[in-house]
Design a protein around this nucleic acid. Sequence first.
RNA 1: GGGCUCGUGGUCUAGUGGUUAUGACGCUUCCCUUACAAGGAAGAGACCGGUGGUUCGAAUCCGCCCGAGCCCA
Length: 874
Amino acid sequence: MPSGEYDPDTVEAKWQDRWVDEETYAYEGDAENPDTAFSIDSPPPTVSGSLHWGHVYGFTLQDFVARFNRMRGKDVYFPFGYDDNGIASERLAEDELDVRHQDYERREFQRMTQEVCAEYEAAFTEKMQSLGISIDWNQTYQTISPEVRRISQLSFIDLYEQGREYRQRAPAIWCPECETAISQVETEDDEQPSHFHDIAFEVVGEADADDPEQFTISTTRPELLPACVAVFVHPDDDGNQDLVGETARVPLFDQEVPILADERVDMETGSGIVMCCTFGDQTDIEWYQAHDLDLRIAIDESGTLTDVAGEYEGLSSADAREAIVEDLDEAGALLDRWGITHTVNVHERCGTGVEFLVKDQWYVELLDKREEYLQAGREMDWYPEKMYTRYKNWIEGLQWDWAISRQRSSGIPFPVWYCADCDEPVLADKETLPVDPLSDDPPVDACPECGHTAFVPEDDVLDTWATSSLTPLINAGWDWDAAHEEFRFEHPELYQFDLRPQGHDIISFWLFHTVVKCYEHTGEVPFDSVMINGMVLDENREKMSKSKGNIVAPDEVVSKYPVDAARYWAAGSAVGDDLPYSEKGLRAGEKLLRKLWNASKLVESLTEDAPAEFDHDDLAALDRWLLASLDREIERLTARFESREFSKARDGLRGFFWHTFCDDYLEIAKQRVRDGGDPSAAYTLSVAHRRFLKLFSPILAHATEELWHDMYGDDSVHQSGWPEPLGIDADFEAGETAMEAVGALRKYKSDAKLSMNADLDRVEVWGDVSGFEDDISSVMHVDELVILDERPPIETVVTGVDLDYSLVGPEFGSQVSEIEAVIDDDAYERVGDELHVAGVELDSEMFEIQEEQQYTGAGEMVDAEDVVVIVHRD
RNA sequence: GGGCUCGUGGUCUAGUGGUUAUGACGCUUCCCUUACAAGGAAGAGACCGGUGGUUCGAAUCCGCCCGAGCCCA
């Protein structure tokens, strides 16, 4: 029985424990029909740190959907994954243990990483449970686990066999700190201080050898001089056009390179003449390919200069830069040097400036199927719909296939060996997966191409996204069925997944890659619907970041406010819009919890003798009205949950509960029960209250559970079923009119500075409140309530005319302003139903006469829309 | 620099061509009415980021500008 004040600290922790212990949210799994299963595929959070607001917000929104569908009778599959096979987790282990992955054997380092991750994963589990997310904790997976490794390697083999993957020697973005190739999406821009150097190049020619022609190139990277393979001039650069076709000699290194014209030169920067090095940046790669240039690799995997750099070999690129600048200066080739700040492409994980290296890399082919992938995106329902545009723009802007090779210790190995002689790739047998080529043998004794018997294992691992993009397959138990020689699902009823929830920041890579891979493996789009949430911003609508120092930790907030209040806050904006963190939002949630708790206490005290059954035909008018109004609210609310309009769902239900139920109905019902044990009112209170708990339960998961157990039984409210409308008819108009009359009397008392329970001697009502007379007089303490048969003596004064512009506008167009002016001057004429004004005739649909009523009889009249209330006091 | 999105009382939010712009939080005044004063009643407060246009009529549609967010260069 609810008593005293609501104590969220105790209550919430209690239910979080019991939900887990009693497996309240376990997937039954006996659903044969995919329509009765509701499956959710959340992107597993990266195990690299602690929980942030993005997690809280995203998972809470998913939880609304999960709980709503569970209530609607769906068997909800809500699993949880830990993404611990990526570079992020590897770096976490390096930081925690203060080690470098290069210093350990791969399996040893993986073991260390998994140990570190285990602690973080346990913390994650606890946090998710303390947020009350209705995850089925029997259904968890780690992306580094053997099961997932198997699926990931199966995926690689399947795509290879389908001809969707290829291996190519190509320039790759390389992080010299992490010593791995990374994809474009793993880089970010960073503003860094640097220097511009003006360096003199000589033109090689027949001119006077003592006084050769010179020109200047500007560069921030003089250490790349040994990698210089060409010099470019813009075709519109008239001043330097004479150089095109000549040959230049690179200072210090003396290689001779062609001078070429290309419009990709930025004429505004430096001298307008630029050197091309293999490779300094993206443009160098394009020039290398377009002009068939030499390849001079001056920087290796670790950022150290190679033998191409001659005497500078072995220096780090930073040391080499200083040495080369010094030597240039000495040789008189350094013309100028000045500090600048410029944007550098860095690896997002470590902040190190990236290099470009030519490496053998595996790619997943994407560019040839753009149209199909666009179509796949269109087949999903997008919440909100506008987010599809981002998916579309991303695909239309794709320029590269997907590089999936990574040179790291941690991660899932490619199940591939190469013939030591002819380089033919040999893939593992599907039955033997997962394998690690470094320690396992290839499935053949001799190369099927050339018969050679020695093999080289692939020591790269797969890009973390190559695995993260398989979560629908992981969740549905995708595997190779050797007996039937086909891929099968352990849980086919889960696929396609009903809901894919995620932030809008990862549409372009995570969602896109998931759609692509699952589509290629199954021929089906993996998701029925995607729900895209916005970002959590700080209270000033700005991004939370360490450098701004505006981060609010979820832990602190949840220890200060009820989790249900945070859930209330999370429902506070349209899905897809960014949501500012707001303590006010949390306090509003707390207030609602308190209101719900207190109202429940009252209902409890009033319904002790409530009949379990009551013939709906015998219900009092007010009770019929309340239950019928609740029916309408249920229909609205259901539609809003279905369309993921959580903010409207929350505000609509809150308003109805607070105002209609508590302020209007409960105030009256409590008197009826107290005065005479009214069974109709007690029954209605009990029915309505049960329904409110169910309706609030997806959002206020803990408080409703506590109240449900206190008052109604041992089952979980979350398994109790969503209420269907009762189908009760009521006189809505009379009910609304009666409430208006009550409102008018409240206003009267407030204006007269009377307390709400002050007695009123006599009140006259003109309006249809039939069936509600006693309700009005009891709640407003009216001694004598009289329903007037005749309109009270009211003098009606016409104060103006309201036009229905949706009719008048299209009909009269530009005459409207004239009509308005004439009406303002009262120069119109009422002829029957019509209004004659400014030479035109408006029919009765088009206007409404605005009137004010002045009461001329005894007593005081109170203003109201559809009812006239007259108060008599002695 | 490009694409997409958002910009509504002090704060958050509803509202995608039609009268006087929704609600919440906060604020002011009154009321201790035995569920709740962390409550109730009443009230003040926004010409809808700026600007130009389309229209009889624009928060709503279009152009430009400003601020914020995400992605990309």
